[in-house]
């Protein structure tokens, strides 16, 4: 039995070794190497000048995660209370954008947010811009929305919201209905049932939703480049530049990646503690 299992596990182990363990080892080796080879810590010293980028990345990822949570939890909860047909339709609608290419989806936001994009045209038509100018005494012909931090956060929220909704939804939908009846039986009205039973029991879903939104948000580079127009340099952009851009320096890129990874893992460990290890399997 044991032999059989390990035989089946071989492809998995090989896969893991090739595509997970090996890259991490290479990354660590690069991170501790100077540009002309040999051990050095200069990459980490150099990183000090990028503190601002680190802070901005984490700040934006946190904001995007919070917004996703604020939108995603109610959506997941309300969805779980509807009929089976509604739930199926809602699920398809939530998944639908994910069947489209990520870059395409993000590009389409440019046509919406652009200075003469769909939204600004709409605002102009309904007289919102004129109204704004009259009130503030400014002289705008459009609301600048592209190439701002807000646009980047919007891109993150838009792209990663399904990853918040789905885990929360799947936890809530699996809640034992008799627990809710028991709570009502013991004197809880609907809001108390939610506060004292549904919310605490859906925390594992919330934690995994936060992980699944925060991690890609903190490391994204495409969104910030497309919607931020290079004004909002994020960690992902910084790392990309070290490998592909003019600032070619893979050692530094590896070091930044390593530090980012460590910070993310630390965040997750703290979060796990916070969740009291209710369902350990949730993370990773």
């Amino acid at each position: 039995m044991k032999n059989k299992l390990s035989r089946f596990a071989v492809p998995y182990v090989v896969w893991m070794a090739l595509f997970v363990v090996a890259p991490i080892i290479i990354m660590v080796v690069y991170a501790f190497a100077s540009q002309n080879g040999g051990f050095s810590l200069e990459n980490f010293v150099k990183m000090g000048s990028y503190t601002e980028v680190f802070l901005r990345s984490f700040k934006m990822a946190v904001i995007a995660t919070i917004i996703c949570l604020l939108i995603g939890y109610p959506v997941a909860y309300l969805m779980s209370r509807e009929g089976a047909g509604f739930q199926r339709t809602a699920m398809v609608l939530i998944m639908l954008p994910m069947w489209m290419n990520f870059l395409l989806r993000t590009y389409s936001w440019i046509t919406i947010l652009d200075n003469n994009g769909l939204l600004n045209q709409l605002f102009q038509k309904i007289g919102l811009i004129t109204l704004y100018n009259n009130i503030t005494g400014s002289n705008l012909t459009y609301f600048p929305m592209m190439n701002t931090g807000g646009a980047v956060v919007l891109g993150m929220v838009y792209n990663y919201l399904p990853f918040m909704i789905l885990p929360i939804y799947s936890v809530i939908i699996k809640l034992d209905h008799s627990l809710l009846e028991a709570a009502r039986d013991l004197g809880a009205n609907s809001s108390t049932v939610f506060r004292k039973v549904i919310l605490p029991l859906s925390l594992p879903g919330v934690l995994s939703g936060i992980t699944m939104v925060f991690v890609p948000s903190v490391s994204t580079f495409a969104i910030s480049q497309m919607l931020g127009g290079g004004t909002e340099l994020l960690l992902g952009d910084l790392i990309e530049r070290q490998f592909l851009g003019g600032a070619y320096n893979p050692q530094l890129g590896a070091a930044i990646s390593l530090v980012m990874m460590i910070i993310v893992v630390l965040c997750m460990i703290v979060m796990n503690r916070f969740g009291e290890g209710e369902e350990q399997a949730v993370m990773m």
Partner: peptide
């Protein structure tokens, strides 16, 4: 509604929190 009745229930599968 159930929460306003002076009645409590022991559920088949206990339904402990």
């Amino acid at each position: 509604p159930p929460h306003k009745r002076q009645i409590n229930t022991v559920f088949q599968k206990y339904a402990l929190f």
